[in-house]
Amino acid sequence: MDFLKKLFQSKPRVQKVDIGRRFELYGRVGQGSMSKVWKARDSKLGKIVALKVLDIDKTNRLEARFKGLKKPTEGEIAITLKHPHIVKTFEHGVTTKNEAYLVMEFVEGVALSFLISAQNDVMKKHCLRMTIELGEAINYFHRQNWIHRDICPRNILLDENHRIKLIDFGLVVPNTPHFQAPGNRTGTANYMAPELIRRQRTDQRIDIFSYAVTCFEMFAGQLPWESGQTLESILSHLNSPPADLKTYCPDLDDRIVQAVMKGLALQTNDRWQRISEMIEVLRSVHQEQSAKDPANS
């Protein structure tokens, strides 16, 4: 738990940054529920970056849910993450307007949600490899003892080489008892695990469920349940089994189908207990397929 001790130690006074003077903003490239992101030139780093600025009020409301628990900030978490399939964070701090900001690598590419909708040749050819890369990113995340809490296609980018980059750590919490306590329901509704929607105790298995929903959507081009507009309607969907991936993808290897469907189990004990176990199945199939047809690796 040394990483938590370091994060929770008192921190030195931070020098605030005037982002209007330091950054040349080229245009907005994204907006989440709690932030705005620009493509920008950083005069300090001397390169193009993604500048993320968090909304003060929304961030404060989120932090209030963890009052007294010393929850690490998004910047404190992001700066520690070093993995090829997780977006790099170079710096974090506070603006002269008291907004939290992050300076990240700029990923020249598209959102995974775009490719899922398009179901184009890139998606069809590299889908399995992409699911493995995403799983490896989440596995690394879990080994660092975090729960992401918002795994979904809008938080996943593909660079110009069609390689996965996991982004957005605004809802991340430590995988520790206090942060696993029932009641804190956050995330993207269609990808939430049943226990999270029901405000039960949660752990890293909620990320495994969200990952499995994302994998299902990547292969099938649609969700395993009918998309809901409210958490209540989604809860009713989760009282029934998911659609069978094999129905939508009859030619998909049975091992992939079984791996994804196990990740979608409504009961946590029926689900994969560690994401590494699910990835191992997918990787084994990918290795076999690559050996037969290297062009599709």
Rank of each mutant, 00 (worst) to 15 (best):
A181G: 02
M104K: 08
F3K: 09
R143P: 10
I19E: 13
S117D: 00
Y101E: 03
G109R: 07
G263K: 13
T247W: 04
T268W: 13
L231V: 05
H92K: 04
R255N: 07
R274H: 14
A111D: 01
H237W: 07
A118M: 02
L196H: 12
K67C: 06
T268K: 07
G109M: 11
Q119G: 00
Q204R: 12
K246R: 05
L238Q: 00
I77T: 13
D168M: 06
K36T: 06
T214R: 01
K262F: 00
G109K: 08
A265I: 09
K5M: 04
F8S: 12
W146F: 08
I86R: 14
N175R: 05
N161Y: 00
Q258K: 03
A220D: 02
F209W: 09
K67W: 13
L238G: 03
G187L: 02
R163E: 11
E105V: 01
L4P: 14
T59N: 12
I132R: 02
H286Q: 14
G46E: 12
W38D: 03
L238D: 01
I208F: 15
D18W: 10
A189P: 02
D159G: 00
D270P: 01
H126K: 14
D168P: 03
L134I: 00
T188C: 09
M34T: 02
R199T: 01
R13S: 07
D207L: 12
G263Q: 06
L223V: 10
K39L: 07
R154K: 11
A78W: 08
A111S: 07
V14Q: 12
V172T: 01
A243I: 15
L196K: 15
A64N: 15
S240E: 09
S233P: 05
D270S: 07
L134Y: 01
E105H: 00
S297D: 13
R65E: 07
T73E: 10
K165N: 04
K44A: 09
N239I: 08
Y140V: 13
N60S: 09
S117N: 11
T89K: 04
F179M: 05
R271A: 12
R271H: 09
D121C: 07
A259W: 03
P177C: 08
L264R: 11
K71S: 06
D2Y: 12
H83C: 08
I48H: 05
E232T: 01
F141M: 11
Q119K: 02
Q287I: 08
V53E: 06
C152V: 05
C249E: 12
K44R: 14
D18L: 06
P153G: 03
I167D: 02
V122W: 11
Q287D: 09
A212D: 14
V260R: 05
P84L: 11
Q273M: 05
Y211V: 04
D254E: 10
V14L: 08
I147G: 08
I156Y: 05
D203M: 05
I156N: 03
E105I: 02
W146T: 07
F114R: 10
K125R: 15
R149M: 03
K47S: 03
R41H: 08
A64L: 14
Y211A: 00
F66P: 00
D150E: 10
